[in-house]
Amino acid sequence: MPKILIVDDDFLIRNLLKQILEPFEEKGVKLFVADNGIVAIDKVKSENPDIIFLDVMMPKMNGFEVCNILKNDLEMKKTYIIMLTAKGQELDKQKAVGMGADFYITKPFNINEIIRKVSEVLNINLS
């Protein structure tokens, strides 16, 4: 069963992503959420998701740190990491790639782009 973990400290963004990914839920994908980096890592350990949507600006531990930890862990590094960055933060894009993120999208999202990417990674066709 494919799993997607959504990590963002903003309730509405989490909600939005869940709604965007609803079509995949109908196809059997399970969605999980976490509101900070520490919980996120726990969830990754326990649920072993295929994709993580990872926000950058979070309290306690920011997205880069989480990404770094995940990529350095033998078991967890296979997870596909999509980082959510604010546009214009050039440094963030570079950092994301440097930290080992697999993809990044900027807020505000392009919904079609998200759907396309998830389909690609999970190999699920929605239409």
């Binding site: 509405l12 963004i13 939005l16 709604q19 965007i20 604010a86 214009g88 807020k107 505000p108 999202f109």
Partner: peptide, 15 residues
């Protein structure tokens, strides 16, 4: 500012 403005905007557009 960049982050704070974009977050609600993301919700508005997304929803």
């Amino acid at each position: 500012v960049s982050h704070e403005l974009r977050t609600p905007l993301t919700s508005v557009r997304g929803f």
